[in-house]
Lab assay of single mutants.
Amino acid sequence: MPVRRGHVAPQNTFLDTIIRKFEGQSRKFIIANARVENCAVIYCNDGFCELCGYSRAEVMQRPCTCDFLHGPRTQRRAAAQIAQALLGAEERKVEIAFYRKDGSCFLCLVDVVPVKNEDGAVIMFILNFEVVMEKDMVGSPAHDTNHRGPPTSWLAPGRAKTFRLKLPALLALTARESSVRSGGAGGAGAPGAVVVDVDLTPAAPSSESLALDEVTAMDNHVAGLGPAEERRALVGPGSPPRSAPGQLPSPRAHSLNPDASGSSCSLARTRSRESCASVRRASSADDIEAMRAGVLPPPPRHASTGAMHPLRSGLLNSTSDSDLVRYRTISKIPQITLNFVDLKGDPFLASPTSDREIIAPKIKERTHNVTEKVTQVLSLGADVLPEYKLQAPRIHRWTILHYSPFKAVWDWLILLLVIYTAVFTPYSAAFLLKETEEGPPATECGYACQPLAVVDLIVDIMFIVDILINFRTTYVNANEEVVSHPGRIAVHYFKGWFLIDMVAAIPFDLLI
Protein backbone atom coordinates (compact mmCIF):
# COMPACT_ATOMS: atom_id res chain seq x y z
CA MET A 1 0.00 0.00 0.00
CA PRO A 2 1.52 3.34 -1.00
CA VAL A 3 2.53 5.79 1.66
CA ARG A 4 4.09 8.45 -0.56
CA ARG A 5 4.54 11.88 0.83
CA GLY A 6 6.25 14.89 -0.70
CA HIS A 7 5.27 17.87 1.33
CA VAL A 8 7.71 20.18 -0.49
CA ALA A 9 4.95 21.17 -2.90
CA PRO A 10 3.89 23.63 -4.13
CA GLN A 11 7.54 23.92 -5.09
CA ASN A 12 9.46 26.75 -6.65
CA THR A 13 12.12 25.88 -9.21
CA PHE A 14 13.12 29.48 -9.91
CA LEU A 15 16.27 29.33 -7.80
CA ASP A 16 17.29 26.02 -9.39
CA THR A 17 16.72 27.52 -12.83
CA ILE A 18 18.99 30.47 -12.06
CA ILE A 19 21.76 28.19 -10.79
CA ARG A 20 21.48 25.84 -13.76
CA LYS A 21 21.53 28.66 -16.33
CA PHE A 22 24.44 30.49 -14.70
CA GLU A 23 26.47 27.29 -14.38
CA GLY A 24 26.00 26.58 -18.08
CA GLN A 25 27.58 29.92 -19.00
CA SER A 26 30.72 29.46 -16.86
CA ARG A 27 29.94 32.43 -14.65
CA LYS A 28 31.25 33.26 -11.22
CA PHE A 29 28.39 34.29 -8.99
CA ILE A 30 26.88 34.14 -5.53
CA ILE A 31 23.26 34.34 -4.37
CA ALA A 32 22.40 36.24 -1.19
CA ASN A 33 19.26 36.36 0.90
CA ALA A 34 18.01 39.93 1.18
CA ARG A 35 15.67 39.09 4.07
CA VAL A 36 18.40 38.30 6.60
CA GLU A 37 20.98 40.49 8.28
CA ASN A 38 23.95 41.57 6.13
CA CYS A 39 22.43 39.74 3.13
CA ALA A 40 24.10 36.43 3.91
CA VAL A 41 25.33 34.25 1.05
CA ILE A 42 23.06 31.24 0.51
CA TYR A 43 24.81 29.85 -2.59
CA CYS A 44 28.15 30.22 -4.37
CA ASN A 45 29.15 28.24 -7.42
CA ASP A 46 32.45 26.52 -8.13
CA GLY A 47 33.60 29.34 -10.41
CA PHE A 48 33.48 31.85 -7.57
CA CYS A 49 35.34 29.46 -5.26
CA GLU A 50 38.08 29.05 -7.87
CA LEU A 51 38.24 32.81 -8.37
CA CYS A 52 38.69 33.79 -4.72
CA GLY A 53 40.41 30.62 -3.48
CA TYR A 54 37.94 30.01 -0.65
CA SER A 55 35.89 26.87 -0.23
CA ARG A 56 32.11 26.88 -0.29
CA ALA A 57 31.93 26.26 3.44
CA GLU A 58 34.08 29.35 4.09
CA VAL A 59 31.90 31.58 1.91
CA MET A 60 28.43 30.44 2.99
CA GLN A 61 26.52 32.65 5.46
CA ARG A 62 29.04 35.48 5.05
CA PRO A 63 27.92 38.98 4.01
CA CYS A 64 27.56 39.27 0.26
CA THR A 65 29.57 42.50 0.34
CA CYS A 66 32.58 40.13 0.28
CA ASP A 67 34.48 42.07 2.90
CA PHE A 68 36.69 39.01 3.37
CA LEU A 69 38.11 39.77 -0.11
CA HIS A 70 39.09 43.34 0.76
CA GLY A 71 42.70 44.45 0.98
CA PRO A 72 44.99 47.50 0.83
CA ARG A 73 44.00 48.38 -2.75
CA THR A 74 40.27 47.95 -2.22
CA GLN A 75 38.64 51.33 -2.69
CA ARG A 76 36.32 52.43 0.09
CA ARG A 77 34.09 54.18 -2.40
CA ALA A 78 33.64 50.97 -4.39
CA ALA A 79 32.78 49.01 -1.26
CA ALA A 80 30.29 51.71 -0.30
CA GLN A 81 28.69 51.50 -3.74
CA ILE A 82 28.19 47.75 -3.37
CA ALA A 83 26.65 48.25 0.06
CA GLN A 84 24.40 50.97 -1.33
CA ALA A 85 23.30 48.70 -4.19
CA LEU A 86 22.27 46.06 -1.66
CA LEU A 87 20.03 48.63 0.02
CA GLY A 88 18.30 49.58 -3.22
CA ALA A 89 16.23 47.75 -5.79
CA GLU A 90 18.08 48.50 -9.04
CA GLU A 91 20.82 46.70 -10.91
CA ARG A 92 24.28 48.22 -10.52
CA LYS A 93 27.81 47.51 -11.72
CA VAL A 94 30.88 48.38 -9.66
CA GLU A 95 34.58 47.91 -10.36
CA ILE A 96 36.51 46.99 -7.24
CA ALA A 97 39.88 45.47 -6.36
CA PHE A 98 39.61 42.15 -4.53
CA TYR A 99 42.21 39.86 -2.96
CA ARG A 100 42.28 36.09 -3.18
CA LYS A 101 42.99 33.82 -0.27
CA ASP A 102 46.64 33.58 -1.32
CA GLY A 103 46.96 37.40 -1.28
CA SER A 104 46.95 38.05 -5.04
CA CYS A 105 45.02 41.12 -6.17
CA PHE A 106 42.67 41.37 -9.14
CA LEU A 107 40.31 44.02 -10.49
CA CYS A 108 36.77 42.69 -10.66
CA LEU A 109 33.52 43.98 -12.17
CA VAL A 110 30.71 43.16 -9.74
CA ASP A 111 27.17 43.13 -11.15
CA VAL A 112 24.55 43.38 -8.37
CA VAL A 113 21.18 42.10 -9.61
CA PRO A 114 18.11 42.17 -7.32
CA VAL A 115 15.32 39.58 -7.58
CA LYS A 116 11.85 40.62 -6.44
CA ASN A 117 8.77 38.69 -5.41
CA GLU A 118 5.19 39.23 -6.56
CA ASP A 119 4.81 42.17 -4.16
CA GLY A 120 7.81 44.02 -5.61
CA ALA A 121 10.00 43.46 -2.55
CA VAL A 122 13.62 42.40 -3.02
CA ILE A 123 14.16 38.92 -1.61
CA MET A 124 17.44 37.87 -3.23
CA PHE A 125 20.56 39.37 -4.74
CA ILE A 126 22.65 37.78 -7.47
CA LEU A 127 26.24 39.06 -7.58
CA ASN A 128 28.11 38.20 -10.77
CA PHE A 129 31.91 38.60 -10.81
CA GLU A 130 34.00 39.23 -13.93
CA VAL A 131 37.78 39.59 -13.75
CA VAL A 132 38.97 42.76 -15.51
CA MET A 133 42.68 42.85 -14.61
CA GLU A 134 45.12 40.76 -12.66
CA LYS A 135 47.44 42.04 -9.95
CA ASP A 136 50.21 43.14 -12.32
CA MET A 137 47.83 45.43 -14.22
CA VAL A 138 45.89 46.91 -11.30
CA GLY A 139 46.55 50.63 -10.90
CA SER A 140 47.08 52.72 -7.84
CA PRO A 141 44.46 52.46 -5.10
CA ALA A 142 44.06 56.22 -5.17
CA HIS A 143 42.73 56.01 -8.72
CA ASP A 144 38.95 55.78 -8.58
CA THR A 145 37.48 53.76 -11.43
CA ASN A 146 33.96 53.26 -10.17
CA HIS A 147 32.55 56.57 -11.34
CA ARG A 148 32.80 55.40 -14.92
CA GLY A 149 30.52 52.97 -16.65
CA PRO A 150 31.64 49.71 -18.27
CA PRO A 151 33.36 49.94 -21.68
CA THR A 152 31.05 49.81 -24.64
CA SER A 153 30.85 46.57 -26.59
CA TRP A 154 31.09 48.21 -30.02
CA LEU A 155 34.58 49.63 -29.44
CA ALA A 156 37.72 47.56 -29.80
CA PRO A 157 39.61 47.01 -26.54
CA GLY A 158 42.64 48.89 -27.82
CA ARG A 159 40.63 51.89 -28.98
CA ALA A 160 38.45 52.39 -25.93
CA LYS A 161 40.69 55.16 -24.59
CA THR A 162 41.20 56.89 -27.96
CA PHE A 163 37.55 57.87 -28.42
CA ARG A 164 37.49 61.67 -28.53
CA LEU A 165 34.69 64.05 -29.31
CA LYS A 166 36.00 67.23 -30.93
CA LEU A 167 34.54 70.40 -29.48
CA PRO A 168 34.84 72.38 -32.76
CA ALA A 169 32.16 70.05 -34.16
CA LEU A 170 29.80 71.30 -31.46
CA LEU A 171 30.87 74.92 -31.83
CA ALA A 172 30.25 74.94 -35.58
CA LEU A 173 26.67 73.65 -35.50
CA THR A 174 25.24 76.61 -37.36
CA ALA A 175 27.97 76.38 -40.00
CA ARG A 176 27.13 72.75 -40.67
CA GLU A 177 23.37 73.38 -41.00
CA SER A 178 23.56 74.35 -44.65
CA SER A 179 25.54 71.23 -45.50
CA VAL A 180 22.95 69.03 -43.79
CA ARG A 181 20.08 70.62 -45.67
CA SER A 182 21.91 70.31 -48.98
CA GLY A 183 22.10 66.54 -48.45
CA GLY A 184 18.31 66.31 -48.82
CA ALA A 185 16.93 62.86 -49.46
CA GLY A 186 20.31 61.59 -50.45
CA GLY A 187 21.69 62.05 -46.95
CA ALA A 188 21.02 59.97 -43.93
CA GLY A 189 19.76 62.84 -41.80
CA ALA A 190 16.34 64.40 -41.58
CA PRO A 191 15.74 68.11 -42.29
CA GLY A 192 16.97 70.28 -39.49
CA ALA A 193 19.16 67.57 -38.00
CA VAL A 194 22.68 68.22 -36.81
CA VAL A 195 25.49 65.91 -37.85
CA VAL A 196 28.30 65.49 -35.34
CA ASP A 197 31.47 63.86 -36.63
CA VAL A 198 33.46 61.91 -34.10
CA ASP A 199 37.15 61.21 -34.62
CA LEU A 200 38.13 57.64 -33.76
CA THR A 201 41.70 57.84 -35.01
CA PRO A 202 44.30 57.21 -32.30
CA ALA A 203 45.85 60.52 -31.30
CA ALA A 204 47.55 62.04 -28.35
CA PRO A 205 45.20 63.69 -25.86
CA SER A 206 44.88 67.38 -26.62
CA SER A 207 43.20 70.30 -24.94
CA GLU A 208 40.51 70.39 -27.64
CA SER A 209 39.35 66.82 -27.09
CA LEU A 210 36.98 65.48 -24.50
CA ALA A 211 36.86 61.87 -23.36
CA LEU A 212 33.72 59.80 -23.91
CA ASP A 213 33.19 59.25 -20.21
CA GLU A 214 33.21 63.02 -19.69
CA VAL A 215 30.49 63.40 -22.33
CA THR A 216 28.43 60.83 -20.44
CA ALA A 217 28.79 62.88 -17.27
CA MET A 218 27.49 66.02 -19.00
CA ASP A 219 23.88 64.99 -18.43
CA ASN A 220 24.36 65.44 -14.70
CA HIS A 221 25.14 69.17 -15.17
CA VAL A 222 22.12 70.04 -17.31
CA ALA A 223 19.96 70.55 -14.23
CA GLY A 224 22.32 73.24 -12.94
CA LEU A 225 21.99 75.35 -16.10
CA GLY A 226 19.20 77.89 -15.91
CA PRO A 227 16.84 78.53 -18.85
CA ALA A 228 17.95 82.15 -19.19
CA GLU A 229 21.59 81.17 -19.23
CA GLU A 230 20.92 78.47 -21.82
CA ARG A 231 19.19 81.00 -24.04
CA ARG A 232 22.10 83.41 -23.78
CA ALA A 233 24.54 80.57 -24.46
CA LEU A 234 22.76 79.61 -27.67
CA VAL A 235 22.34 83.16 -28.99
CA GLY A 236 25.99 83.43 -30.00
CA PRO A 237 28.26 86.44 -30.56
CA GLY A 238 25.67 88.45 -32.50
CA SER A 239 23.66 89.20 -29.37
CA PRO A 240 25.91 89.48 -26.36
CA PRO A 241 24.31 88.59 -23.04
CA ARG A 242 23.01 91.44 -20.97
CA SER A 243 24.17 91.57 -17.43
CA ALA A 244 22.62 93.53 -14.62
CA PRO A 245 24.58 96.40 -13.04
CA GLY A 246 27.18 95.04 -10.73
CA GLN A 247 26.80 91.51 -12.10
CA LEU A 248 29.43 89.66 -14.08
CA PRO A 249 28.54 87.97 -17.38
CA SER A 250 27.65 84.32 -17.15
CA PRO A 251 30.60 82.00 -17.80
CA ARG A 252 28.19 79.50 -19.35
CA ALA A 253 27.32 81.96 -22.10
CA HIS A 254 30.98 82.72 -22.64
CA SER A 255 31.79 79.03 -23.10
CA LEU A 256 30.01 78.86 -26.47
CA ASN A 257 31.32 82.16 -27.82
CA PRO A 258 33.28 81.32 -31.01
CA ASP A 259 35.45 84.42 -30.64
CA ALA A 260 36.45 83.52 -27.14
CA SER A 261 37.04 79.88 -27.99
CA GLY A 262 39.09 80.70 -31.04
CA SER A 263 41.46 82.95 -29.14
CA SER A 264 42.69 80.12 -26.96
CA CYS A 265 43.41 76.51 -27.86
CA SER A 266 42.26 75.02 -24.57
CA LEU A 267 38.90 75.16 -22.82
CA ALA A 268 38.15 74.44 -19.21
CA ARG A 269 36.46 71.12 -18.52
CA THR A 270 33.56 72.82 -16.77
CA ARG A 271 32.91 75.09 -19.73
CA SER A 272 33.05 72.15 -22.12
CA ARG A 273 30.43 70.22 -20.19
CA GLU A 274 28.12 73.20 -19.87
CA SER A 275 28.42 74.12 -23.53
CA CYS A 276 27.54 70.61 -24.66
CA ALA A 277 24.64 70.50 -22.22
CA SER A 278 23.31 73.78 -23.63
CA VAL A 279 23.49 72.54 -27.21
CA ARG A 280 21.65 69.33 -26.33
CA ARG A 281 18.65 71.34 -25.14
CA ALA A 282 18.00 72.55 -28.70
CA SER A 283 16.12 70.16 -30.97
CA SER A 284 17.94 71.20 -34.16
CA ALA A 285 19.90 74.00 -35.79
CA ASP A 286 16.60 75.69 -36.71
CA ASP A 287 15.89 76.18 -33.02
CA ILE A 288 19.29 77.83 -32.57
CA GLU A 289 18.52 80.32 -35.36
CA ALA A 290 15.07 80.92 -33.87
CA MET A 291 16.60 81.67 -30.48
CA ARG A 292 18.85 84.26 -32.08
CA ALA A 293 15.84 85.89 -33.73
CA GLY A 294 13.97 85.88 -30.42
CA VAL A 295 11.13 83.60 -31.53
CA LEU A 296 11.03 79.84 -30.94
CA PRO A 297 8.52 78.10 -33.26
CA PRO A 298 6.81 74.88 -32.18
CA PRO A 299 8.66 71.70 -33.13
CA PRO A 300 7.75 70.46 -36.62
CA ARG A 301 5.92 67.17 -37.02
CA HIS A 302 8.30 65.07 -39.04
CA ALA A 303 10.01 61.76 -38.67
CA SER A 304 13.08 63.17 -36.97
CA THR A 305 11.12 64.59 -34.05
CA GLY A 306 9.19 61.40 -33.53
CA ALA A 307 12.25 59.22 -33.40
CA MET A 308 12.45 59.47 -29.66
CA HIS A 309 8.81 58.47 -29.08
CA PRO A 310 9.45 54.74 -28.81
CA LEU A 311 12.41 55.56 -26.59
CA ARG A 312 10.12 57.23 -24.08
CA SER A 313 7.98 54.12 -23.73
CA GLY A 314 11.10 51.98 -23.48
CA LEU A 315 12.52 54.14 -20.72
CA LEU A 316 9.27 53.97 -18.78
CA ASN A 317 9.25 50.17 -18.99
CA SER A 318 12.95 49.65 -18.40
CA THR A 319 13.87 47.54 -15.39
CA SER A 320 17.34 48.83 -14.56
CA ASP A 321 19.79 51.61 -15.18
CA SER A 322 21.62 49.42 -17.69
CA ASP A 323 19.00 50.47 -20.27
CA LEU A 324 20.01 54.10 -19.81
CA VAL A 325 23.68 53.20 -20.15
CA ARG A 326 22.91 51.32 -23.37
CA TYR A 327 20.97 54.29 -24.72
CA ARG A 328 23.79 56.70 -23.94
CA THR A 329 26.28 54.39 -25.60
CA ILE A 330 24.29 53.92 -28.80
CA SER A 331 23.44 57.61 -28.99
CA LYS A 332 27.17 58.36 -29.26
CA ILE A 333 27.92 55.97 -32.17
CA PRO A 334 30.04 57.91 -34.71
CA GLN A 335 29.03 58.99 -38.22
CA ILE A 336 25.27 58.99 -37.62
CA THR A 337 22.73 61.77 -37.64
CA LEU A 338 21.77 62.93 -34.17
CA ASN A 339 18.33 64.48 -33.79
CA PHE A 340 18.35 66.59 -30.65
CA VAL A 341 14.73 66.09 -29.63
CA ASP A 342 13.13 66.94 -26.34
CA LEU A 343 11.72 63.91 -24.53
CA LYS A 344 8.51 65.86 -23.84
CA GLY A 345 7.30 65.64 -27.40
CA ASP A 346 3.83 65.44 -28.85
CA PRO A 347 2.09 62.32 -27.50
CA PHE A 348 -0.01 62.06 -30.65
CA LEU A 349 2.97 61.44 -32.90
CA ALA A 350 2.96 58.02 -34.49
CA SER A 351 5.82 55.78 -33.48
CA PRO A 352 8.01 55.23 -36.55
CA THR A 353 9.47 51.85 -37.27
CA SER A 354 13.11 51.51 -36.34
CA ASP A 355 15.57 48.87 -37.49
CA ARG A 356 17.64 49.33 -34.35
CA GLU A 357 16.11 48.51 -30.98
CA ILE A 358 17.74 50.76 -28.41
CA ILE A 359 15.83 49.78 -25.29
CA ALA A 360 14.76 46.24 -24.46
CA PRO A 361 11.08 45.50 -25.30
CA LYS A 362 8.38 45.88 -22.73
CA ILE A 363 8.46 43.08 -20.24
CA LYS A 364 5.17 41.37 -19.64
CA GLU A 365 3.41 41.28 -16.31
CA ARG A 366 4.78 37.89 -15.37
CA THR A 367 8.37 39.14 -15.51
CA HIS A 368 7.99 42.72 -14.32
CA ASN A 369 9.74 41.82 -11.06
CA VAL A 370 12.75 40.20 -12.73
CA THR A 371 15.59 42.50 -13.72
CA GLU A 372 17.02 42.66 -17.21
CA LYS A 373 20.27 40.94 -16.21
CA VAL A 374 18.44 37.86 -14.93
CA THR A 375 16.22 37.73 -18.01
CA GLN A 376 19.25 38.03 -20.29
CA VAL A 377 21.20 35.30 -18.51
CA LEU A 378 18.31 32.87 -18.27
CA SER A 379 17.40 33.41 -21.95
CA LEU A 380 13.78 32.66 -21.13
CA GLY A 381 10.64 34.25 -22.48
CA ALA A 382 7.83 35.82 -20.53
CA ASP A 383 5.78 32.62 -20.76
CA VAL A 384 8.53 30.48 -19.22
CA LEU A 385 10.16 32.66 -16.62
CA PRO A 386 7.97 32.74 -13.49
CA GLU A 387 7.95 35.16 -10.62
CA TYR A 388 9.69 34.16 -7.45
CA LYS A 389 6.69 33.01 -5.42
CA LEU A 390 4.87 29.86 -4.41
CA GLN A 391 2.84 28.76 -7.39
CA ALA A 392 0.17 26.08 -7.31
CA PRO A 393 0.97 23.46 -9.98
CA ARG A 394 -1.43 23.08 -12.86
CA ILE A 395 -3.19 19.76 -12.44
CA HIS A 396 -5.73 17.92 -14.55
CA ARG A 397 -9.33 17.55 -13.59
CA TRP A 398 -10.24 14.85 -11.06
CA THR A 399 -6.63 14.65 -9.91
CA ILE A 400 -5.97 14.43 -6.18
CA LEU A 401 -2.99 16.24 -4.71
CA HIS A 402 -0.86 13.96 -2.57
CA TYR A 403 -0.49 16.69 0.08
CA SER A 404 -4.21 17.57 0.24
CA PRO A 405 -6.18 17.08 3.49
CA PHE A 406 -8.43 14.49 1.83
CA LYS A 407 -5.45 12.34 0.87
CA ALA A 408 -4.02 12.62 4.39
CA VAL A 409 -7.28 11.44 6.00
CA TRP A 410 -7.63 8.67 3.42
CA ASP A 411 -4.11 7.39 4.12
CA TRP A 412 -4.83 7.22 7.86
CA LEU A 413 -8.02 5.27 7.16
CA ILE A 414 -6.19 2.80 4.91
CA LEU A 415 -3.52 2.43 7.59
CA LEU A 416 -6.16 1.42 10.16
CA LEU A 417 -7.64 -1.09 7.73
CA VAL A 418 -4.20 -2.57 7.11
CA ILE A 419 -3.69 -2.97 10.87
CA TYR A 420 -7.12 -4.65 11.14
CA THR A 421 -6.26 -7.02 8.30
CA ALA A 422 -2.89 -7.87 9.82
CA VAL A 423 -4.52 -8.77 13.17
CA PHE A 424 -7.85 -10.39 12.31
CA THR A 425 -6.87 -12.37 9.23
CA PRO A 426 -4.50 -14.69 11.16
CA TYR A 427 -7.07 -14.89 13.98
CA SER A 428 -9.85 -15.91 11.58
CA ALA A 429 -7.61 -18.47 9.88
CA ALA A 430 -6.52 -20.05 13.19
CA PHE A 431 -9.71 -20.08 15.26
CA LEU A 432 -12.89 -19.06 13.46
CA LEU A 433 -12.28 -21.20 10.40
CA LYS A 434 -11.80 -24.32 12.59
CA GLU A 435 -15.02 -23.63 14.55
CA THR A 436 -16.95 -23.22 11.32
CA GLU A 437 -15.79 -26.61 10.05
CA GLU A 438 -16.71 -28.43 13.31
CA GLY A 439 -20.09 -26.72 13.85
CA PRO A 440 -23.36 -27.27 11.96
CA PRO A 441 -23.73 -25.52 8.62
CA ALA A 442 -25.52 -22.17 8.87
CA THR A 443 -26.66 -21.40 5.38
CA GLU A 444 -29.97 -19.83 6.27
CA CYS A 445 -28.67 -16.83 8.26
CA GLY A 446 -26.03 -15.87 5.67
CA TYR A 447 -23.81 -12.90 6.58
CA ALA A 448 -25.82 -12.22 9.75
CA CYS A 449 -24.13 -15.15 11.44
CA GLN A 450 -20.67 -14.04 10.25
CA PRO A 451 -20.16 -10.32 11.09
CA LEU A 452 -16.41 -10.51 10.51
CA ALA A 453 -17.03 -11.65 6.96
CA VAL A 454 -18.99 -8.46 6.33
CA VAL A 455 -16.15 -6.38 7.75
CA ASP A 456 -13.63 -8.23 5.58
CA LEU A 457 -15.76 -7.54 2.52
CA ILE A 458 -15.88 -3.82 3.33
CA VAL A 459 -12.12 -3.78 3.87
CA ASP A 460 -11.53 -5.40 0.48
CA ILE A 461 -13.81 -2.86 -1.20
CA MET A 462 -11.89 -0.03 0.45
CA PHE A 463 -8.62 -1.46 -0.85
CA ILE A 464 -10.02 -1.53 -4.40
CA VAL A 465 -11.14 2.10 -4.06
CA ASP A 466 -7.65 2.96 -2.81
CA ILE A 467 -6.18 1.48 -5.98
CA LEU A 468 -8.44 3.68 -8.10
CA ILE A 469 -7.51 6.75 -6.05
CA ASN A 470 -3.80 6.02 -6.47
CA PHE A 471 -4.25 6.16 -10.24
CA ARG A 472 -5.29 9.82 -9.87
CA THR A 473 -2.94 10.95 -7.09
CA THR A 474 0.05 13.16 -7.86
CA TYR A 475 3.57 12.22 -6.85
CA VAL A 476 7.00 13.86 -6.55
CA ASN A 477 9.65 12.78 -9.05
CA ALA A 478 13.42 12.71 -8.64
CA ASN A 479 13.68 16.43 -9.47
CA GLU A 480 11.28 17.27 -6.62
CA GLU A 481 8.59 18.28 -9.09
CA VAL A 482 4.91 17.47 -8.63
CA VAL A 483 3.70 15.25 -11.49
CA SER A 484 -0.01 15.52 -12.25
CA HIS A 485 -0.22 13.97 -15.72
CA PRO A 486 -2.54 10.91 -15.59
CA GLY A 487 -0.40 8.82 -17.92
CA ARG A 488 2.79 9.41 -15.98
CA ILE A 489 0.97 8.76 -12.71
CA ALA A 490 -0.32 5.41 -14.03
CA VAL A 491 3.12 4.31 -15.23
CA HIS A 492 4.69 5.31 -11.93
CA TYR A 493 2.03 3.42 -9.96
CA PHE A 494 2.36 0.30 -12.12
CA LYS A 495 6.11 0.26 -11.47
CA GLY A 496 5.63 0.70 -7.74
CA TRP A 497 2.85 -0.35 -5.41
CA PHE A 498 0.22 -1.60 -7.86
CA LEU A 499 1.06 -5.31 -7.58
CA ILE A 500 1.19 -5.24 -3.77
CA ASP A 501 -2.09 -3.34 -3.52
CA MET A 502 -3.79 -5.72 -5.93
CA VAL A 503 -2.76 -8.78 -3.94
CA ALA A 504 -3.91 -7.12 -0.70
CA ALA A 505 -7.31 -6.28 -2.22
CA ILE A 506 -8.12 -9.86 -3.35
CA PRO A 507 -10.90 -11.29 -1.07
CA PHE A 508 -9.31 -14.65 -0.24
CA ASP A 509 -11.91 -15.33 2.48
CA LEU A 510 -14.71 -15.29 -0.06
CA LEU A 511 -12.79 -17.39 -2.55
CA ILE A 512 -12.05 -20.21 -0.09
Rank of each mutant, 00 (worst) to 15 (best):
E177K: 09
A350C: 08
R312W: 10
R62D: 01
G149S: 07
T270N: 14
R56G: 01
N12A: 15
I19R: 01
L171V: 10
H309R: 09
P299A: 04
V36D: 04
E134K: 13
N146H: 05
S266F: 07
A193G: 05
N257R: 06
A57M: 12
Q75K: 10
S283R: 05
T201I: 04
S284Y: 05
K161F: 04
S26W: 06
S331Q: 07
S239T: 12
E37Y: 05
P157E: 06
C105R: 13
V377T: 03
A188N: 06
R312N: 11
L165K: 06
D213W: 03
Y99M: 01
V295C: 15
R76P: 15
D197T: 01
T65K: 03
C49R: 03
A83F: 06
Y327N: 12
R92A: 13
A172D: 14
R148H: 05
S209T: 15
K344S: 05
V3W: 13
T319I: 11
Q335F: 04
G246N: 04
A40G: 14
P361F: 05
D136P: 14
P141T: 06
N33P: 01
R292N: 14
G262C: 04
T13Q: 12
P72E: 07
V113F: 13
F14Q: 12
E208N: 09
L69R: 01
V198K: 03
N33Y: 03
F29G: 01
L15N: 01
V132H: 06
A190D: 15
W154P: 08
T162R: 11
D197Q: 06
G306N: 05
W154N: 11
K362S: 08
H302Q: 07
A360D: 15
S261P: 13
T17W: 13
F129H: 04
R164I: 12
A121E: 09
I42V: 12
V325D: 14
Y54I: 01
P157N: 07
V112W: 01
L86C: 14
P251M: 08
E90S: 09
I333M: 15
L170E: 08
R366N: 07
L107V: 15
L51V: 01
D111Q: 06
S255A: 07
R35Q: 14
S206M: 13
M291R: 15
R76Y: 11
M133D: 06
G236L: 07
A175P: 14
G184F: 11
M291L: 12
V41M: 06
R164S: 12
I358C: 12
G246S: 10
F22S: 13
H70A: 06
V131D: 15
V36E: 13
F129T: 01
I30L: 11
A285E: 12
R301C: 12
V215I: 13
C108W: 01
S153Y: 04
E208M: 04
L165D: 10
N45Y: 01
N128C: 09
S284A: 12
G186S: 11
C66F: 07
L380K: 04
P151K: 15
G120P: 07
G186K: 04
G53I: 01
R181E: 06
V131H: 13
V370H: 03
I18V: 11
T329Q: 15
L380R: 04
S351F: 04
P72W: 01
D16C: 06
A169Y: 12
T375S: 07
T145N: 15
L210P: 07
T367Y: 13
D259L: 08
L343E: 05
M218Q: 13
V384A: 04
L167E: 15
L210D: 08
W154E: 15
T337E: 15
R62E: 08
S239N: 14
S283W: 01
I96Q: 06
H7D: 15
P251K: 13
R5K: 13
H302C: 11
Y54E: 01
S264I: 14
I31H: 01
C265G: 11
A57F: 08
L324T: 12
P352V: 12
S263E: 13
G184I: 14
G24A: 08
I19T: 05
A211T: 13
L343S: 15
A79M: 06
H309V: 09
A85K: 01
L170P: 15
H254E: 15
L256F: 14
S266Q: 07
H147C: 05
V215R: 06
K93N: 13
V110A: 01
K101P: 01
N317K: 03
A282R: 11
T319Q: 05
I333D: 15
G47K: 08
P63K: 11
R280Q: 14
D144S: 14
D199V: 01
P347G: 13
A40K: 08
G71Q: 01
E50A: 12
R148W: 07
A290C: 13
R164G: 14
G139V: 13
E289S: 04
D259C: 11
A156E: 15
P2H: 03
A307I: 12
G306K: 04
D346Q: 11
S275L: 05
R269E: 15
Y327C: 15
P227A: 05
L311M: 14
I82F: 14
D346M: 05
G381T: 05
F68G: 01
P114C: 01
H7E: 14
P251N: 04
A32V: 03
R148I: 07
T65D: 05
P63C: 13
A57C: 12
L171R: 15
G236D: 15
E134C: 09
P240G: 09
A203E: 15
D355E: 10
G294T: 12
R312M: 05
T319Y: 08
L109S: 15
M308E: 14
L173Y: 15
F340V: 15
V215C: 06
V374Q: 01
D102A: 01
N45D: 01
A172G: 15
I96R: 01
G120M: 15
A89Y: 14
H143P: 14
V194R: 01
D321A: 14
G103A: 07
A169R: 15
R20Q: 12
D323R: 07
S272Q: 07
I126M: 08
M124A: 12
L315H: 14
P241I: 12
A360E: 06
P168C: 04
G262A: 05
A204I: 01
A360I: 10
D346E: 14
D355A: 14
V113K: 09
W154A: 14
A203K: 13
S26Y: 08
V138S: 13
I330V: 12
R356H: 14
I18G: 01
S283G: 09
K344H: 14
R312F: 05
G306A: 12
R271M: 06
